[in-house]
Design a protein around this nucleic acid. Structure first.
Lengths: 201, 201
DNA sequence: CAAAGAGCTGAGCGATTACTCACAATAGTG
DNA sequence: CACTATTGTGAGTAATCGCTCAGCTCTTTG
């Protein structure tokens, strides 16, 4: 397997850019349907209705395609949170965070599940993810720092804990549908995080 | 690939039982070191110092080996929690739950990471896991039901939420070592869960 | 000890798959 | 139109890997 995740050739014409895009779309479908291992590059090319050769013009290897999809998802979730810092509004802030997570997972929970659970996490990709994650946690940390109702021992630990908790619980509920409804999870999750942030009783 | 996860042959002699065991031990090492996909059956056999043929005497396919390892892990975590149901002791109960999770992950976090993130979850294996998980959640639910300090809307949702939250946060901390210490995570996690279970302030 | 059963061996088969490369088609340019 | 640069093609290659099977060795049994 060739290494490196960056594209092999930079598109100069419009049709090239389209091809690149078709590959990604097709890959999303194929991975969702077959999983990562069984989502072969030939299948992706077939679905994109291009030749396998073209696929390898733009992505140096299979991993690079999935990496690109993952990075896209992560970037989509990096938007700002509309915050309210008046006293007593902590629950609303937390609810906004939880809703964000849910929205971000709602697009294509199956693909996300594949990406989270089956992605071959190369050092390169892992670093990209970690970098972004840190940004996200820092963002949450700053929100917490500004809110008067927050009372926790350590802001960094708290930010990391709640970010991950919200993310993973959302992921689980949407990827593996179960008895618990989205609404029920949302309110419980909001309760848990809010009570935690408010500090000792 | 052959299907089914149950052993192909039941051992009748002692050496057979030993061989079975050697395979599992070797598999744990090989999966830990190479991941699931690159942890080939030939490598496992080599490491166990038995022939590839013998391996297939006891496990019908590669998936079955990993399934066995996973089931072992789950069963290990199914032990009873020493509970205290006197008022004011909720924090202690939660702490016990968290400690259990940490202990259970401490054996071999790397292997667990492979199993959680790369296991090919066949319907069969998924069902086994789900069954075990449900038992575990029910256990936690019963503990909560007996404790006078617990005040949540819905016991089932709460039990599921905290079980998963504790499990995943522990997993993350141990599999991807980071700035946050085990002790810090433990106390924050205990705080969060305890405050949640105590209900509205 | 002999026969039968249990356990073990490992070369190699069949299937799959990521990826290449020599060439063809299309688009841009003057 | 002629020339070049870019993009597209797909049969084929090399490598990998899960798994089989014909035949061996070891253990048990009577």
């Amino acid at each position: 397997m060739t290494s490196g995740l960056s594209p092999r050739r930079e598109p100069r014409q419009v049709r090239a850019e389209l091809t690149r895009e078709r590959i990604l779309t097709a890959a999303a479908h194929v991975f969702t349907e077959h999983g990562y291992a069984a989502g072969t590059t030939n299948r992706i090319a077939e679905r994109a209705r291009i030749s396998i050769g073209s696929l390898y013009q733009y992505y140096p290897n299979k991993d690079a395609i999935l990496a690109q999809l993952l990075i896209r998802h992560i970037d989509r979730g990096a938007g700002p949170v509309n915050a309210d810092f008046s006293p007593g509004s902590l629950r609303a802030l937390v609810r906004a965070l939880v809703r964000d997570a849910i929205t971000n997972h709602d697009d294509d929970p199956q693909l996300l599940r594949i990406m989270i659970e089956q992605a071959p996490l190369s050092t390169e990709l892992l670093e990209t993810i970690t970098r972004h994650e840190r940004t996200r946690v820092a963002q949450v940390r700053d929100l917490l720092a500004q809110h008067p109702d927050v009372a926790v021992r350590d802001l960094d630990t708290a930010a990391e804990l709640i970010t991950f908790t919200v993310e993973m619980n959302t992921h689980k509920l949407l990827a593996y549908p179960r008895a618990v409804s989205v609404e029920a999870l949302e309110s419980e999750l909001v309760d848990m995080v809010t009570r935690y942030l408010r500090g000792a009783q």
